[in-house]
């Protein structure tokens, strides 16, 4: 009887020990994995922060790091210590700097982040102000091979959906030459080249003001409470605090109102200048022969007003208004058609 009980208890203990200590599957190993992941996420986010501060010219400090990551200053100091031990960063009199291997690690995470944003915005059609937060969560779990594969599948994009350059697999990062909209002179034509994605609330404000990447604008008026810009068609207003998150570059010609394919009446024609969409939608349009330079004629609208049929290279293609809005054209008079 006691022998049987002993055998039972030993088996139970052995089973329990196995469940706890089984390599990679056991509870202990699982706990350590989550812990390590959380740890790695913190370090990678810290590296990103130091990198961003280096680019801006104001170096990161333990306090800024603690604020950014939402940890105590003491925890931030511990992390800095660990990064210094690992040869990723070092403290200088003015703040934190990355070592070459730290920069490489930071760029790897930024690369994953921006490629993920591209994927979320183009392929899943997620709203622009939501892609950043999702990419922030997923960027840490992708391996370098998976990131390379994602890049190839997306067709080697060079910018994320906010206009930030994507680092290459070898770690090269193009610098972006742009000026904040608040520092741009009134009346000089400009093109939006970058929308800062942090904080997301600011980006949401910019998006709801109707400003998008690649838009041609001109600052009309700068005030304390609002900044008025002209996009060739209408005036748009936004608060200076949002405008400081919009970056622009010079434009060689005055701002022209874009003409969209959807504005054509039956019988009118236009030559395609550019497609203002990415991902699946863009590929579909290109596949149908709607390439820049092509002359498109508006054929007839549907019985309920939408969609509209267009004549493209001899074929009849129906598009909804949203697709027509994404195609920028220059009007062509009927006589000059091929």
């Amino acid at each position: 009887m006691t022998a049987a009980l002993g055998l039972f208890l030993t088996t139970l203990a052995a089973a329990l020990a196995l469940a706890l200590f089984w390599p990679r599957r056991g509870l202990l190993a699982r706990w350590r994995q989550t812990h390590q992941l959380a740890d790695r996420v913190l370090i990678e986010d810290a590296l990103k922060h130091i990198h961003a501060r280096e680019l801006r010219g104001t170096l990161a400090t333990p306090e800024s790091l603690a604020g950014k990551l939402g940890v105590s200053v003491r925890q931030a100091l511990e992390m800095i210590e660990r990064m210094e031990e690992g040869g990723l960063a070092h403290s200088t009199g003015r703040g934190l700097r990355l070592t070459p291997s730290g920069r490489k690690a930071a760029l790897r995470v930024i690369r994953a982040h921006r490629l993920l944003e591209r994927y979320l915005a183009d392929e899943l059609r997620m709203p622009l102000e939501e892609v950043h937060a999702t990419a922030d969560r997923r960027e840490h779990v992708l391996t370098a091979e998976e990131v390379d594969e994602l890049e190839a599948q997306l067709g080697y994009p060079q910018q994320d959906p906010h206009g930030d350059p994507i680092p290459t697999s070898s770690g090269a990062l193009e610098s972006l030459e742009a000026t904040a909209l608040t520092d741009w002179p009134v009346g000089r034509p400009a093109r939006i080249v970058h929308l800062e994605d942090e904080p997301p609330e600011a980006l949401a404000g910019i998006v709801s003001a109707g400003l998008v990447l690649d838009m041609q604008i001109e600052v009309r008026q700068v005030g304390k409470e609002r900044l008025v810009v002209w996009d060739g068609e209408q005036e748009r207003e936004l608060a200076p605090v949002f405008a400081s998150n919009v970056f622009v570059a010079g434009l060689s010609h005055p701002v022209q109102p874009p003409v969209r394919l959807s504005s054509l009446e039956p019988g009118e024609a236009g030559r395609i200048l550019a497609l203002r969409c990415e991902g699946l939608g863009r590929r579909r349009l290109l596949d149908l022969g709607l390439t820049p330079g092509t002359v498109v004629e508006c054929a007839f609208p549907g019985p309920l007003g939408e969609p509209t049929a267009y004549r493209v290279r001899g074929a009849l293609i129906a598009l909804r208004k949203e697709q027509g809005d994404e195609i920028e054209i220059e009007p062509v008079s009927a006589a000059r058609r091929e």
């Binding site: 059609r125 969409c277 939608g281 074929a315 129906a318 949203e322």
Partner: peptide, 13 residues
């Protein structure tokens, strides 16, 4: 949930 994605429809002869 989601936005209506790309709609293109070919009207063959």
């Amino acid at each position: 949930k989601g936005e209506a994605s790309s709609f293109t429809l070919e009207l063959p002869p």
